[in-house]
Design a protein around this nucleic acid. Structure first.
Lengths: 305, 305
DNA sequence: GGCGTTGTATAGTTAATCTCTATCGCATTG
DNA sequence: CAATGCGATAGAGATTAACTATACAACGCC
């Protein structure tokens, strides 16, 4: 029993004439004849009474035809589902973002994606890189925004932008008069750091090897956020390093805080998109990339593909 | 897209492993692989993300699988319907009976058929032979009980029983002392006849050629029934001829009526079943035949097949 | 970092099936 | 009784579906 057989069956029930039914199905009369006979043999039921005068459907035949119509209807729904699902910009997209990007990117990203792909709602999760990677591989996320380096089997990454680091210090700090800060100076002041698990913490420590080795005065704030740290800096608890997108939006004449770049070569992080190689909705990812690049993130430099 | 493809699809969605899914479908892994790929091409949608680690279903894939399950479920119903409908003794049987048999046969027939085939309800229509024949050919009836001769293209008949004719006369009639009546005598008395269209009327006239030619005293009672005629005979309005099943059930010592056979050779009618050659439920017809033969119709002689 | 393992895709072949044209057989009709 | 209409059947050809064998990719393990 195939869907084709059922189509023949329904056509014959409608036409009550093998020739006409065959024509409607764009097949020859013998083809339809044989198919119906095969169906009857398979079901071990007489579906039609053939006579010279006309073709009559049996009681059981009528019931089976009604069921066959239901099957064909449901099968048609499959094609409709496929057509509707063909558009990579339709259907929800599960996006993951690391904590140190989310608060600065998402407010810009979400409306831009919605404008570009109105029928692609975003389901967003913020988390550590490691957790995002796990969810991505498991299929709980479709695409994630992380900082490089990020290497995972089965995952491809695409750099989107580079983002320089800034030094944040309270108003009245000794370095206030400096134009730019040398990375090596970081060990001299109490440096406020995010907790373990945040890749940005590691990247900052990378910038300041002395801090990493524990020679500096750094203090780790577990379970905190860049925003909390910023407030702490404002109260004079120490200095910190922020990505430009988090540091630069502040009005430069902020009463409590000063932002300074590093001296060249500026340390920076490279932010990338990552998804499973097998993920089929590449169009959706393109939309995300474009929306990120269209977002006004101060200080960032796009990475050409 | 075939039902087989959908079965593969559902299996793969369940197993999330091409090899295991193929095994469950009793096909080789490449067969299933190719089928899924063909489906994906046809629907122009990626249903699964294949990777070394595992097989993930896409969002659209999951929706299509759910729909495929629905299709397969409905398709399975077809087989169930066929199985249920395979029994010729299941489902209603549309039976037609001529007016001069129905009242005497049906009270016996119906309970016997119900006993033999409890899930085959009878839908019964009484009518003239010509009308029954029309309904039978149109498919409004499945089998009819008529008197022979009955020849119709596409219709087969099977004699069931022979039924002798009887003479019915009022008590005190001149022929009361006769053991048997000669057919030729019928022209001498007022003979009450059914209206045109009843085959039994013609058969009676056949018995008595003089009556047919209008030489007798016959009176036709249009729109009447054998029972009405019997009452009229009882009131002395004339005599009549009845089939034995209608005449003999009377207690012989009926105060108002006398029943006499004809002198040999007794005139009789041959009652038969008729159905379309193409009618598939021959088992149902066998049940009807058996039930008729098991009915206590006085005077009738079974006709061996 | 090469190598074995696991798992899917591809190639090539064979077998089944589907569909076609041509024709038969049956029944009705003029 | 020939003509016609219609479904069934036969035989050929083409398509498709299945198999086996093998390639290929990704990961894990010494």
């Amino acid at each position: 029993m195939t869907l084709t057989d059922l189509r023949y069956l329904v056509a014959l029930a409608r036409e009550r004439h093998f020739g006409h039914a065959a024509e409607r199905c764009n097949v020859s009369q013998p083809t339809l004849s044989v198919a119906i006979k095969k169906l009857e043999d398979e079901l071990a039921v007489t579906l039609f009474e053939r006579s010279a005068a006309d073709v009559k459907i049996t009681d059981i035949g009528a019931r089976i035809v009604a069921q066959a119509e239901k099957v064909l209807l449901e099968a048609g729904q499959i094609k409709e589902l496929a057509t509707a699902g063909r558009d990579p910009l339709s259907g929800p997209l599960k996006v993951g973002v690391i904590y140190t990007i989310g608060p600065y990117l998402l407010p810009h990203l979400i409306p831009r994606v919605h404008a570009a792909a109105p029928s692609m709602p975003l389901l967003i999760q913020e988390n550590y890189t490691a957790r995002l990677a796990e969810s991505l591989k498991r299929g709980d996320l479709d695409v994630i925004v992380v900082a490089l380096p990020f290497e995972e089997p089965g995952i491809v990454t695409q750099a989107v932008y580079d983002e320089p680091f800034r030094v944040l210090m309270p108003a009245g700090h000794a370095w206030e008069k400096e134009e730019a800060i040398a990375a090596s100076s970081l060990a001299e002041a109490p440096l406020l750091l995010l907790g373990a698990g945040n890749c940005f913490r590691d990247q900052v420590l990378e910038v300041c090897p002395m801090c990493r080795s524990g020679e500096g005065l750094q203090r780790t704030l577990e379970g905190s956020s860049l925003e909390t740290i910023r407030h702490m800096v404002a109260t004079g608890a120490g200095i910190t390093v922020l990505p430009s997108s988090a540091a630069d939006p502040l009005p430069d004449g902020n009463a409590l805080l000063n932002v300074r770049p590093f001296v060249a070569p500026e340390p920076f992080r490279r932010v990338a998109l990552a998804w499973r190689v097998t993920y089929p909705r590449s169009g959706a990812i393109d939309v995300i990339r474009s929306a990120i690049l269209a977002s006004p993130l101060p200080g960032v430099r796009p990475v050409s593909r």
